[in-house]
């Protein structure tokens, strides 16, 4: 259940960005979530829908999740492969000397906003 803590972090970050940019309302927040980031998008959205009711600038904002596939690179043969299917061991050369290249992301990509009237 660390999704709730993550949602609080997102709400705080987006509120900061909204303030800096003189935003009246946030329509949606687009996140990038890695396949092996340990975040369950369904839980995240449930927590989100609850949390945004408590924020003036975010009330009713939609969460959009872009999934990032997990890819591992082998340090021995230099090839990349899908992490979830093969895990820690390189399917090409059987080496265990492998590192996750992508798939661990939990980041805010962009937000869609409506500007305050005084901006115009």
């Amino acid at each position: 259940m660390h999704e709730l803590g993550i949602v609080f972090n997102i709400v705080n970050s987006v509120e900061d960005v909204a303030k800096q940019n003189n935003v009246a309302r946030v329509n949606s927040v687009t996140l990038q979530i890695g396949e092996v980031s340990t975040v369950v998008p369904d839980y995240l959205i449930d927590c989100w829908n609850w949390a945004v009711k408590k924020s003036d600038v975010l009330r009713g904002a939609q969460m959009i999740v872009e999934n990032i596939p997990a890819v591992t690179i082998c340090n021995d043969c230099g090839k990349t492969y899908p992490t979830v299917r093969y895990g820690k061991i390189c399917p090409f050369c059987k080496s265990e000397n492998t590192v996750l290249q992508s798939g661990n992301e939990i980041s805010i990509k962009e937000i869609e906003v409506v500007d305050s009237a005084e901006n115009e």
Binding site: N9, V17, I108, E110, E112, D115, N119
Partner: peptide, 18 residues
């Protein structure tokens, strides 16, 4: 009419906590 625009954030969710 409301002016809608996209702001690129490109920020790790845990950046504030870090």
């Amino acid at each position: 009419m409301d002016k809608v625009r996209i702001i690129e954030v490109k920020q790790n969710v845990l950046a504030n906590n870090d």
